[in-house]
Computed example of a mutant assay.
Amino acid sequence: MTDPKFIELIEAATKEAEKAMLKFPQPNYVLLKIAEEAGEVVKEGVHCSEGRGDYKNLKTEITQVIAMLYRLHQEGDQTIGLEPIKNF
């Protein structure tokens, strides 16, 4: 059974991604941004585990990664000619 809070996170990320797709259309460095956001998740996760992070910030960073993964699915990365994953 899927956790309803995780579904909420995905829905929030999808909405955020859809806004960003309008504001920052392709070509866009989607793959590089996924790596950047994933690094932010790791950094904030480490900070949380050390007692100096904030779980709200960690959730925000996770949302950003999911948003970029959604963009990869929907748009691909036109800067490198990567087709949208939804096409396959």
Rank of each mutant, 00 (worst) to 15 (best):
K23S: 08
I7L: 15
K33S: 14
Q64P: 01
K15I: 08
T79C: 08
Q26P: 02
V41M: 06
G76I: 00
I66P: 03
E16D: 15
F24S: 11
D54K: 03
R71F: 01
D54Q: 01
L32C: 09
R71P: 03
C48R: 03
S49Q: 12
Y55G: 12
T2Y: 10
M21D: 12
A38N: 09
I7K: 14
K43W: 03
Y29G: 12
A67Y: 00
A20T: 08
E44G: 06
L58S: 02
H73D: 13
E75R: 05
I85C: 04
K15G: 15
M68A: 12
E50W: 02
A35Q: 09
G76K: 00
R52K: 13
L9N: 06
N28V: 05
K56V: 14
E40A: 08
H47T: 09
L69D: 05
F6E: 14
Y55L: 15
N87M: 09
P27F: 02
G81I: 02
A12T: 15
T60I: 07
I62F: 05
I80Y: 01
A38I: 07
E16F: 05
L22P: 05
V65H: 06
D77E: 05
A67G: 10
M21Q: 13
M21R: 11
I66W: 03
F24T: 13
A20K: 10
F24C: 08
A35S: 13
C48K: 03
I80V: 11
K5L: 14
N87P: 05
E83W: 01
I80G: 06
K86F: 00
E16P: 00
K15Y: 07
L9A: 12
A13I: 03
Q78F: 01
R52T: 14
K86Q: 10
T60G: 12
V42M: 14
G39H: 02
D77M: 01
Q74N: 10
K43Q: 13
R71W: 01
V30N: 08
A17V: 03
A35V: 10
K33N: 15
K56Y: 10
L31P: 01
E44N: 04
T63V: 10
K59H: 10
T60L: 08
M1V: 14
A17H: 01
V65L: 04
F24L: 11
K59I: 10
K33F: 02
I34K: 07
H47A: 15
E37M: 06
D77A: 00
G39Q: 07
Q78A: 13
C48I: 02
F24N: 15
P84G: 06
R52P: 02
V42D: 12
G39L: 05
E40T: 11
V30G: 08
L58I: 01
T2D: 14
T79W: 00
E37D: 14
F88E: 08
D54I: 02
G51W: 02
T14D: 13
V42F: 05
E40F: 01
A67C: 07
N28E: 06
V30L: 04
I80D: 04
E11M: 11
L82E: 09
N87K: 13
